[in-house]
């Protein structure tokens, strides 16, 4: 069985935020206004986090890190959920069951990567955008927590297609919207249990590191960078 993971190459990333927009459109994430952003209530499943890096030559010393859900192998969010609304499945995806969530927000606090978002209000789209919501992703109501799902609805579609064609799922059949949209090909997605996959090859690179590795969450998102990151991430 597959174990889905992602590699984000920060040396390739131009911080264009195409992934952020692709994610928002793909997953029916309602746009937030300035007031919500100021209150820390803006929802974004994938966002760019600015981190002060080291200055090298003419390169600016600010590094922007795309931050999706890490889909940890030992997710702290699951341990605190009192109603089993968040679970890790057999393919390593950390799911959020909106209809079970009671909105206690323990998980948003427990997540060391702060990628979980609470719906403080009913999602609203500007008039023409309401017609363009994706039917493949539930619209979350007010009062529940949501987060990056690695676009698992795309896995459902990909599996359905592969099964109908009578073949196993192959690399590239299932890509989240962010990986598909990245013009610099900085986001690579695939099966961490398949030794021939690009994610496995890349995550063995000497440039590879993981965020907050010392917590033992075992994130399935690996970053690549030539920079020195000790103590800064």
């Amino acid at each position: 069985m597959a174990r889905w993971g992602m590699v984000i190459d920060l040396d390739r990333c131009t911080a264009c935020q195409a992934c952020v927009v692709a994610c928002q459109v793909e997953n029916n994430v309602a746009p937030s206004n300035a007031g919500q952003a100021e209150a820390g209530r803006a929802i974004s499943w994938l966002r760019l986090v600015p981190i002060q890096g080291e200055r090298r030559g003419t390169r600016p010393d600010l590094q922007l890190i795309p931050l999706p859900c890490m889909h940890c192998s030992h997710p702290p969010c699951i341990k605190v959920c009192p109603v089993q609304a968040t679970k890790i499945d057999h393919e390593g995806l950390v799911s959020q069951v909106y209809s079970r969530c009671i909105g206690c927000r323990y998980c948003t606090t427990a997540c060391p990567y702060t990628v979980r978002h609470f719906n403080w209000k009913k999602p609203e789209w500007p008039a023409p955008m309401e017609e363009t919501l994706s039917p493949d992703v539930s619209v979350r109501p007010r009062g529940v927590v949501e987060k990056c799902s690695f676009c698992h609805h795309r896995l459902q579609r990909a599996k359905d297609k592969a099964q109908a064609e009578g073949r196993p799922l192959k690399e590239g059949d299932y890509l989240p919207a962010c990986a598909e949209s990245c013009p610099a090909e900085a986001i690579v997605f695939g099966d961490l249990d398949d030794p021939r996959s690009a994610v496995v090859r890349l995550s063995q690179s000497p440039r590879a590191f993981k965020l907050l590795e010392e917590l033992g969450t075992e994130p399935k998102v690996t970053y690549l960078s030539k920079g020195e990151w000790g103590g800064q991430v």
Binding site: K87, D89, H90, E91, L93, S95, V97, D136, V137, S138, S149, H152, H153, L155, Q156
Partner: peptide
């Protein structure tokens, strides 16, 4: 067959 939430729910 799979009874994972992610297998059917979206």
């Amino acid at each position: 067959v799979s009874t994972d939430c992610t297998a059917c729910h979206r």
